[in-house]
Design a protein around this nucleic acid. Structure first.
Lengths: 220, 220
DNA sequence: TTACCGAACGCACGGTCGTTCACTCTGTCG
DNA sequence: CGACAGAGTGAACGACCGTGCGTTCGGTAA
């Protein structure tokens, strides 16, 4: 089963998801409207509906599509780097860029939809929670690989990794939240400074990390 | 203009807002429905509508009501304490309790609605942004009063206060987010540990602060 | 060629939404 | 006392929502 008839459907699906991830980052997954999307893309409401089966399935597909964008922009640029503190720092910088350059117009997609669904049981919340858990797992893995590569001072043990990951992610997410709500890109510099402070505090060779984060050159 | 006729209206308004702040912390301010609220309280939809004038006004009133609850639970218990690092730590603990004990069933009200409205211009977003800005200002003031009281090491200057406030608030908010989405109260301990780490790192007398945060005794 | 499958359409449904309007009732106040 | 104001009602509105059904059309596979 290859090309042609089903390919057209896949293209339409991709076109729809291209819109929905953007819309959802601003208005939330509940703000998606089949009719609106159909009109925007010159399709019929029932056509869009048929492509996904239900609104909930469209929401789930949107989360998965956003996940791919996230991986593409945040994880992939760093994936091949050798383990170490520098790789971790690159990963976090990559996230700050992803958020600050508004890959999604409403800031980080997962920040928005996590807050939207965090207290509402259901498949969508489960999918969002899974995506977030995977992201946390990846951050912790990168940090632990750095630790195993001897990037951190003696005394910094495996058990300290989740705490460090937590503190770094907190800074990243507040940068996103603050910059979007207050249209203040300086939050990214604050976050970068905080992250570097945490990394340099535990790094075996702090001087291999920059003293300060790069200046933010994107206005929001 | 005193009691009786207008008092009944005020009581109804209060009853409505008591519901809406809880609903909004779970389903968002957009999830409020005049009809649902009216049915729940045994009123007519138009009656509720008339009390507030429009849905947007109801949303604004809800934000203001939530703000009062926030001040009551977070700021008031600490307000009279003498300036210093201990007061700051008490304030942050107070926030973690407010979030963790689910004063609002969906976790921190302002976390939810900030994420909901951060990218949508309008009066509601402005009100939310103002509330958040005031909260940031209060945190910075408490920290600066501690600084002026000599609570921090020499070298810690006024210019460092916003950065410290940013890092502390990041930890608090991720504790809220993580605990709600993953039903994992251990995030509050991580946040507490991180906050204490930051405070002790700059405190003139670190030993007057606890080494570890109190164990969390609330399950979420 | 025939038989099928999936994309996409048009239409209609039942429901909910915020809002409007005319109305009743009753404390408050000149 | 009489006039006003504000709480609350009930019915109706127009708009939009997600969903279901029947159908058309064209690419795919036997």
């Amino acid at each position: 089963m290859a090309d042609g008839r089903v390919e057209r459907g896949n293209q339409t699906r991709r076109a729809v998801l291209e819109r929905t991830v953007k819309i959802a980052s601003v208005d939330g997954l509940e703000g998606l409207s089949l009719g609106k999307i159909a009109t925007d893309l010159g399709l019929s409401k029932s056509g869009v509906f048929a492509l996904f089966g239900s609104k909930e399935d469209l929401q789930l597909a949107t989360v998965r599509a956003a996940r791919e964008v996230f991986v593409e922009h945040v994880v992939r640029p760093v994936r091949e780097a050798p383990p170490g503190a520098a790789k971790a720092w690159q990963l976090f910088l990559s996230w700050l860029e992803y958020s600050g350059r508004r890959v999604f117009p409403g800031g980080c997609f997962f920040y928005s939809v996590s807050a939207e669904f965090d207290a509402r049981p259901g498949p969508v919340r489960d999918e969002v929670a899974r995506a977030r858990a995977d992201w946390i797992g990846y951050v912790e893995r990168v940090l632990d690989e750095a630790r195993l590569a001897g990037a951190f001072r003696p005394g910094f043990e495996a058990a300290d990794v989740p705490q460090l990951a937590f503190e770094v992610m907190a800074l990243m997410e507040l940068a996103n939240a603050h910059s979007v709500l207050h249209e203040d890109p300086s939050a990214y510099e604050r976050a970068g400074r905080g992250i570097l402070g945490r990394l340099r505090a535990v790094a075996a060779a702090p001087d291999e990390l920059p003293e300060r984060p790069p200046a933010v050159d994107y206005a929001v």
